[in-house]
């Protein structure tokens, strides 16, 4: 303001430069925030992962991370994450769909039930899962008559996927619920008025409309699962060790930051790859549709 009144001769130019300066000022916190919280840690992690004990550059941490046990842990991590993403999508869809049909009050209550397990300590949850899924648990007691019982639902990959899926459900349900609420129910009525049955309406109208939500929900739970290790440790066995566990072990037990950094970078790359994949698929789908339309 002072500058403006002081130099009335060239107010325009002053205003312009002032504007840019103010703009930079406004952007500064965000830029600093991003630099401090994202760019700096990522770059320093990258450096760590490329540094030898004597300070020279090396790729051997990556070679380490991609061979032997580390590689199989990585593959396990990807597999479990994919399974979790798929299952939490399916169950999330069913749940969100049901909830989106409820009245707001009931919807809120149902949502609470979905979300609450998130806030229960890992230990209590462990206990709960054992009561539910253990060899002498509720599920096996009720299915005692079935051939092959008791089923081993814990301390294997199935157990882990059940656990991680339950942890992911709040995310997928919330995300899908939002998307589903955004779908105009009138469109479904319109389809019905033209003679479309429930299955057709679901397949040709509802599903395409919530598809973007499905993609992002699936991706979200995949990415979140990649970094999980508490639930896999609780509900799995050694074969379900996830890459985050390894990173944690290296840092906290062996004070081995370089190897951990390399695995962290790999995890980041996998996450980005996942993002890219979904983007690619959705744009491919869109262009394919365009081609078929014209």
């Amino acid at each position: 303001m002072a500058a403006l009144t002081a130099a009335p001769a060239r107010p325009r130019k002053l205003l312009a430069s002032r504007k840019t300066r103010v703009g930079i000022l406004y952007a500064l916190p965000v830029v600093v925030y991003l630099l401090v919280l994202f760019v700096y840690p990522i770059i320093s992690t990258l450096f760590l992962s490329l540094k030898n004990a004597d300070g020279s550059l090396t790729l051997h941490w990556y070679v380490d991370a991609l061979t032997g046990v580390n590689l199989s842990v990585l593959i396990t991590t990807l597999r479990i994450s994919a399974e979790t993403a798929l299952l939490s999508l399916v169950f999330g869809f069913i749940l969100a769909n049901a909830i989106s049909r409820l009245r707001p009050l009931w919807a809120g209550l149902a949502m609470l039930i979905v979300v609450v397990p998130h806030f229960i300590s890992a230990l209590v949850r462990t206990y709960g899962w054992i009561i539910l899924l253990g060899d002498k648990g509720l599920v096996n007691e009720t299915l005692a008559w079935a051939p092959g019982a008791p089923y081993h639902l814990l301390y294997n990959e199935l157990g882990v996927v059940i656990g991680t899926t339950s942890m992911m459900l709040p995310y997928t349900v919330l995300l899908l619920y939002g998307v589903m609420r955004g779908v105009d129910r009138g469109l479904l009525a319109a389809a019905a008025s033209m003679g479309a049955g429930r299955v057709t309406i679901f397949r040709r109208v509802y599903l395409p409309l919530v598809a973007p939500g499905l993609a992002s929900a699936g991706l979200l739970s995949f990415i979140l699962s990649l970094g999980y290790y508490i639930t896999p440790a609780l509900m799995g066995g050694p074969n379900q060790t996830m890459i985050a566990t390894l990173i944690n072990q290296q840092v906290t037990k062996e004070n081995q930051w370089n190897g951990a950094a390399a695995q962290g970078v790999l995890l980041l790359l996998l996450t980005l790859a996942g993002l890219l994949l979904v983007k690619l698929i959705s744009s491919l789908g869109a262009s394919a549709k365009k081609r078929s339309a014209s």
Partner: peptide, 16 residues
């Protein structure tokens, strides 16, 4: 509705 074979035009268009 889908069995009645009627046409319906809505105020909000409701195009897909």
């Amino acid at each position: 509705p889908q069995k009645r074979n009627l046409g319906f035009v809505f105020q909000q268009y409701l195009l897909f």
